[in-house]
Amino acid sequence: MGFIRDRRNSSTNTSPCADLRTAYHNCFNRWYSDKFLKGHWDKEECVSEWDKYKDCLSKHIDDKNLSRFLEAEGLNRIPAASSK
């Protein structure tokens, strides 16, 4: 069914951010293992990687479900997960 293939392709439309995403996730994974788990949780790292990635993401998220969710939760503005 052709339409399924088309939709799969359109789902990867945030790929302009793929490199920035990888850079941030690599940085995060290193920080998590080497710092956070060892008790050095006093300061965040990967800040510039995060800022670049997040800027890109907010420009390119055009999936309606995801942007609706982001608007509803205000996740792009306020800190996440205080519900826990």
């Binding site: 799969r8 789902s11 990867t12 945030t14 951010c17 995403r21 941030y24 996730h25 995060f28 998590y32 956070f36 008790g39 949780w41 006093d42 300061k43 965040e44 995060w50 990635y53 993401l57 995801l66 982001l70 996740l75 792009n76 800190p79 996440a80 997960a81 205080s82 826990k84």
Partner: peptide, 23 residues
């Protein structure tokens, strides 16, 4: 799993808690 994006994250330096939201 086609794609994973981090939407937000928050570190609480005083408690050692890390909150993350991903899509």
């Amino acid at each position: 799993i086609l794609q994973v994006d981090t939407l937000n994250h928050k570190l609480e330096p005083e408690t050692g808690k890390l909150y993350t939201t991903r899509a």
